[in-house]
Design a binder for these strands. Sequence first.
DNA 1: TGTACATCAGTGAACGCGCGTTCACTGATGTAC
DNA 2: TGTACATCAGTGAACGCGCGTTCACTGATGTAC
Lengths: 232, 232
Amino acid sequence: MLILLFFFRRASRLNTALKLNQRYQQKLRTRQALVQAALDLMGEDKSLGELSLREVAGEAGIVPAAFYRHFQNMEELGLALVDDLGGKLRTILREARKKGAYKTALQASMGLFFEYVRNNRLLFRFICRERTGGNKRIRQAIRNEMAFIAGELASDMRLPSSIPFSEIQFLSEMIVTNAFHMAAEFLDSDLKDTANAKRLQWKTVKQLRLIFKGGLQRKKKRIRTTKSPLQS
Amino acid sequence: MLILLFFFRRASRLNTALKLNQRYQQKLRTRQALVQAALDLMGEDKSLGELSLREVAGEAGIVPAAFYRHFQNMEELGLALVDDLGGKLRTILREARKKGAYKTALQASMGLFFEYVRNNRLLFRFICRERTGGNKRIRQAIRNEMAFIAGELASDMRLPSSIPFSEIQFLSEMIVTNAFHMAAEFLDSDLKDTANAKRLQWKTVKQLRLIFKGGLQRKKKRIRTTKSPLQS
DNA sequence: TGTACATCAGTGAACGCGCGTTCACTGATGTAC
DNA sequence: TGTACATCAGTGAACGCGCGTTCACTGATGTAC
């Protein structure tokens, strides 16, 4: 009993160091509520720059002034959003990899990808919107996240070893860019129009297949055609 | 003299029909000032949704209430912007075509394209930003403009006749998408970092070359490789 | 242990400000005869 | 022609509102001893 009490007191003393105390937990929860509130309020159409501090605080259930206990301004909250969602995105893709998505057919991988996009609609809308949308720091942060994802994809693809890594990185970037572009198109289309969804998914598969073909072929031999003047 | 007077009176009577009267001209000028003011005020970082009616009116040199003589709200002004700039964009690309850009090497074409992007920085920033940025109607309008451009490109490319038009359209879309994406990256990079500009331009050329290769090859024969499981 | 003190997330009121929108108006331009 | 009237782009004042930010505060949680 004495030992137990001693243990609790010890634990209590370690609170600060371990950051396990009640106050800290509550702060984290509120912070998360702010981030989620921002994501919800942006919804389909609103950009981060159009959100007001007051509405975010209100949605999160705190008074406007309390916002400053968590972020200096909305830009800081935006960067936190990118960070949070970047992490989530990478988890999603890592999970997909575990399921062996990259090892199965391209078409199946894209099926999984579109399913994730559908299930994390607001997340992907945010990323697609702010990637070119507003603030420069946010754009840069998103660019970094996407570069990271492309990097992971590059390491993960097992392409013929004859292809240099820089080339694989180049292909990964194109794949990520085009996949996200198609995800944006998909999210903009009517949710219930499954025919259109299928069409967009198929188009994506076709695009990526083309990228692989163009990319892999380039390392085998250079084709020359006199018919088309379009290849420099 | 009498005849001249008669002519003037006659012309005056036709004013309404011909819409050449002074008042109409002035209105057009003010409208254009509003559109230009919006473009200038958005600059590098601000989205259309972040602009206030008051600041646009102020920059254009009219009182806020006068804004309503031209547009019902900021969204309408945005659509006018897309329309105006869409027209300008098509003119630019048509001009490039006249210069024979598509008939020369891909690399030279892209050199021209990037020059245009540089010279119409605000225009391209606006298009790239709002393409995924804010309001759904604006996004749709921009998507239409880009589809139109892709269509023009598709008609203009003289690829081997063995390739069906739908396939050419598919390639055009990919080209436009990727070119605009790279334009956005280019506009986000340091203006004075010419080395980086060159790098991005070269990367774009590489991307488009890959698309052509992948696209043209696909119609010749299907390659099968057992080395990579990535092509479905 | 328990008491006295420190910390700090969240409060609530207040501020000055720019916002979108309305309204009756002005006066230059256009029209009818 | 010129006069009398119509049109309408732009004015200027006013409105109620939500904004970001500040401030002294409260009271639950944490710490020292």
